[in-house]
Computed example of a mutant assay.
Amino acid sequence: MKITFRCDPSLIELLPRPVPAKAALPAWLREMAPRMPSPVHGRAIRTVKQCPPFVDAMTHGFMILLPCDVRVAQGRFEWDWPLPPLALDNHPRAPLSFHVPEQIAGSPLAQGGQSAVKFNSFWTIELEPGWSLMAVHPVNRLDLPFRLLSGLVDADRFHEVGINFPALWTDEGFEGVLPRGTPIAQCYPVPRGGADELICEPMSDERQQGYETLAAKIMAGPGVYRKGFRRKSG
């Protein structure tokens, strides 16, 4: 899969570039202990740091990064980001804009009269024919003070302008700086179209035996999925 990012020529040396998600893992994951004592189990047990599905989800796709420091104080957002003249007249210059509350009124996303944050895009994203772009909140990143709203864009066709990323600001008590390079959106290509056929059926005798065999291995010791089933990306 070739993914092409483009930006205004004046910004090519100024913007943080999208990075593979595995290059943007948070410090807390690296610093976590692989095992912790559990009073319930009476022994040390593995933490999520040793759970391949948990970690693999965090390393899937690529990250769009915040282009500059954003200061947050008393519900106000400020930045000092002087940009050079741009080649494009209709291009954003601010890292953030907003959606008015009425755009999410009546949904579970509504937070009283609070506006939704919109992370403006400084990169266009082009995918190969037949592929769409899924954008989600950086996976398992509950430490971030916002929650990105998921979206799916046919980026094989819509790629002349950037994709903006709306989010809810969830940490009302956050005071400080959201630094340049903070992951704001985790993205990955998905093939166009959904499931063609969903089949629900009882397990055959053979499937039941397979279930019992694999379940017994899992109960006998750790690492069964990681050693026998996981296919690590390059």
Rank of each mutant, 00 (worst) to 15 (best):
I64R: 02
P26Q: 04
K118A: 11
M134E: 10
E31F: 05
S38G: 09
F77M: 07
A21I: 05
F229N: 01
G234W: 09
M203S: 10
G176Q: 04
G130N: 07
L144Y: 05
I104M: 09
H60I: 02
R180F: 12
P18F: 04
M63F: 06
G181S: 04
P67W: 02
V190Y: 00
M32S: 11
P82N: 07
I64M: 14
K118E: 08
D8V: 03
F62P: 04
Q208T: 13
I104L: 12
G221R: 03
R71Q: 12
D89Q: 15
K118C: 13
F165Q: 11
V40I: 15
P53M: 09
W81V: 09
R93K: 11
R46C: 10
V153M: 06
R93S: 04
H60P: 01
A155N: 05
A73G: 08
H99C: 12
F54D: 02
G113N: 13
N164I: 11
R17N: 06
S38P: 08
K227D: 15
R141S: 11
H91Y: 15
R17E: 14
A105S: 14
F62L: 11
A195F: 10
G112A: 11
A215M: 13
R6C: 12
G42M: 01
S107W: 08
A33V: 07
K227G: 15
I184A: 06
R76K: 13
A155T: 06
M219F: 05
M134T: 08
M134R: 12
H91S: 09
A110F: 05
G151I: 01
V19R: 12
A94P: 07
N90K: 05
W28D: 14
K22P: 00
M58K: 03
G162T: 08
V55P: 01
Q111Y: 01
L109F: 14
F229Y: 14
G75F: 07
T213K: 13
A167E: 10
E197F: 13
C187W: 01
T59A: 14
G181R: 00
W169V: 03
K118T: 13
S204F: 14
N164V: 13
F174T: 00
I3E: 02
P92T: 04
P138I: 06
P101T: 04
T213Y: 10
E78Y: 01
E13Y: 11
T170C: 08
A94L: 07
G61V: 03
V48K: 07
S132W: 10
R6D: 12
A21W: 07
D80K: 10
S115A: 14
H41F: 08
G151V: 02
T170W: 02
G193P: 02
L88S: 12
P53K: 06
E102V: 03
A215G: 01
R180K: 15
P82L: 06
L109T: 02
L86C: 07
L144P: 09
W123E: 11
G113C: 08
D154W: 00
Q186Y: 09
E212C: 06
M63A: 02
S107K: 03
G75Q: 07
Q209E: 15
S121C: 12
R157V: 12
K227T: 15
G193Q: 01
E206D: 15
E175W: 04
R147L: 12
L66W: 07
H41D: 03
P34H: 05
I104W: 11
